[in-house]
Structure formats: structure tokens, C-alpha cells
């Protein structure tokens, strides 16, 4: 990947962040912090890693992405629109009466693999999906994104045991490790620590990356599978609310909607970041 392409993806992340804030503002609801946190992960997945497109979405051999942290649905909707799964204008209906674009992923929206939203569900489904590939000798890969607070749900650990037992090296679990959950720092809520050791003990091949670095993400995904016969786990250290100074690392921005003033400052900050990338303003 050339430096220019990395910069292009970085510019895309900024556009995605602007769009996320815009649709949350328009809908007057949404999960702001967690969506901004996961932008770079979904950016790299959908633009560089996943073998899936609107044309191949029904293909049995497509790569699957299952978003277990369903509340961060805005980032998924924005990225899928950008990838051409539907019109960008559809995003204006977010959370409106009779819209399919509801506050958690649903298969009524083109490109969404599974209905998620209750936590601790994506990984077991991903394990079943990856196991089916092994049974059928298919080469598709399965990716699932989990929140760090979500790891408190025991079903994740049940599924992890199965992932290792069935040697699902076609499965990649990504933890959006932003260290916050709705009531505060994850460490103070449950004292969840030593995630690398825990996942390693459960049989994963674990890699740690800066989950808000396009370059790091591109690099880590290029090494899949990390070890033959082991499920892959990427501990992606992220910043909740990434990209907007006053949203970053703020617990109360879990599902806070920006005021008019906050929104315009956020747009200014993101535009400035884009200029700093040395690119002219483009339309996304």
C-alpha cells in the first residue's frame, strides 16, 4: 500500500466521521462515541480487506463481517453507503418512522449480515459461519467486531472455546478496545484486564494494534491468518469518540447527540484535520 493510498483512506475516515455526526445530529439519536471509535477499523475492512461488494453480497464465497457491537450502527451504515450498498440519501431516514435504518444493524438494510444489537451475540454466530466454511471447504473469511464492555457477556467466552476447538483460523475477532462503556471506564465497571493473556489462554493468536491507525490496521490484516489452526484476535486499542477533541474519551458521549454549537466545532476540527493531511476538500 503506497503512502498516497494510506492518506486516501485517512481522508475517508474523516469523511466517515463527518457523516456519522451528521446523521446522528439529524436523527437526534445515535451512539456517537463508539461509532467514531470504530471508523478506521471498518474503513480498512470494507475498503481493503473484505472480499464483498453489493454485486457479490449473495455469493456464498463472500467474506462476512458481523458487527457484534451493534449499537455503533452509524459507522456501519455510513461505510456501507460509501461502498454502494444503497444510496447515501437513505441515511437521512435513520431512526425515522418505518425506516429500515434503525438503531441497530438489521438485514433489512442491504449489506448487513446479521441482526445484532443485544451484546454477546455476534461471536457465536461468526463461529457458526466460519465453521460452515470449514465444513464446506470454502475459502471465505469471517470477521466480527466486539466492544470491550461487551466482553462482560459470558456468551463470548463460550464461543471462544468453540472457535479454538474447531481451529477456526478463518475467523477474525476484532476488539474495539476503547476502554469505556456506558457507565464508565471498563476497568472500573468490571476490572477487565489482561485481555491479551485471556484471549491467548482461550486459544487465539492475538495481535495488538493501534485501532485508529490506518497503517497499523492495514499491516495487521495483511498477516491473516496469524497462525494456522488458531482463530485470530486483534486487540485494537482505540479512542472512544476519536477525531473530535471534546468527544474523545468522554463517557457521556456514549450516546450524546451534538448540539448545534458542538456540531459546528466538530465539523471545523474534522475539516482542519483533512487540510492537515495535505489534501484539498473533496466531496465524499
Amino acid at each position: 500500500m503506497s503512502e498516497k493510498n494510506v492518506q486516501e483512506l485517512e481522508r475517508k475516515s474523516i469523511q466517515y466521521r463527518k457523516k456519522i455526526l451528521s446523521i446522528i445530529k439529524a436523527a437526534n439519536s445515535g451512539h456517537t462515541g463508539g461509532s467514531l471509535s470504530a471508523v478506521d477499523i471498518l474503513n480498512v475492512l470494507y475498503n481493503e480487506v473484505l472480499n464483498v461488494s453489493p454485486d457479490t453480497f449473495q455469493d456464498l464465497n463472500r467474506d462476512r463481517y458481523i458487527q457484534s457491537k451493534g449499537h455503533s450502527v452509524e459507522v456501519l451504515y455510513v461505510v456501507l453507503a460509501d461502498r454502494g450498498f444503497y444510496d447515501e440519501a437513505d441515511l437521512d431516514t435513520l431512526n425515522q418512522y418505518q425506516s429500515h435504518f434503525i438503531g441497530h444493524p438489521t438485514r433489512k438494510v442491504n449489506g448487513v449480515e446479521q441482526n445484532t444489537g443485544a451484546l454477546g451475540h455476534g461471536l457465536p454466530i461468526a463461529v457458526g459461519t466460519a465453521l460452515a466454511a470449514k465444513k464446506d471447504g470454502r475459502s471465505y473469511r469471517v470477521f466480527t467486531l466486539l466492544g470491550d464492555g461487551e466482553l462482560e457477556e459470558g456468551s463470548n467466552w463460550e464461543a471462544s472455546m468453540s472457535a479454538a476447538h474447531y481451529q477456526l483460523d478463518n475467523l477474525t475477532v476484532i476488539i474495539d478496545y476503547n476502554k469505556l462503556q456506558i457507565s464508565g471506564p471498563v476497568e472500573t465497571v468490571t476490572g477487565i484486564t489482561n485481555l491479551k493473556e485471556k484471549f491467548t489462554a482461550f486459544g487465539y493468536a492475538v495481535r495488538e494494534v493501534d485501532g485508529n491507525s490506518i497503517e497499523d490496521l492495514l499491516e495487521v490484516f495483511s498477516h491473516l491468518p496469524f497462525e494456522s489452526g488458531k482463530p485470530n484476535l486483534i486487540l485494537a486499542h482505540t479512542t472512544k469518540g476519536k477525531g473530535v477533541s471534546f468527544i474523545e474519551n468522554q463517557v457521556n458521549w456514549h450516546h450524546h447527540v451534538p448540539t448545534d454549537a458542538e456540531f459546528s466545532i466538530a465539523m471545523e476540527e474534522l475539516d482542519a484535520a483533512k487540510l492537515a493531511l495535505g489534501e484539498r476538500n473533496g466531496t465524499w
Partner: peptide
């Protein structure tokens, strides 16, 4: 692990099993 049983079953079914 019954939660796991149902979730994994769902993933297998979604993949044509």
C-alpha cells in the same frame, strides 16, 4: 453452553446448513 449452541446454529444456518 446453550447460548453458544443457538448462536453457532444460527451462523451455520445462515451459511446454508
Amino acid at each position: 453452553a446453550e447460548q453458544n449452541l443457538v448462536g453457532i446454529s444460527a451462523g451455520l444456518a445462515a451459511s446454508g446448513k
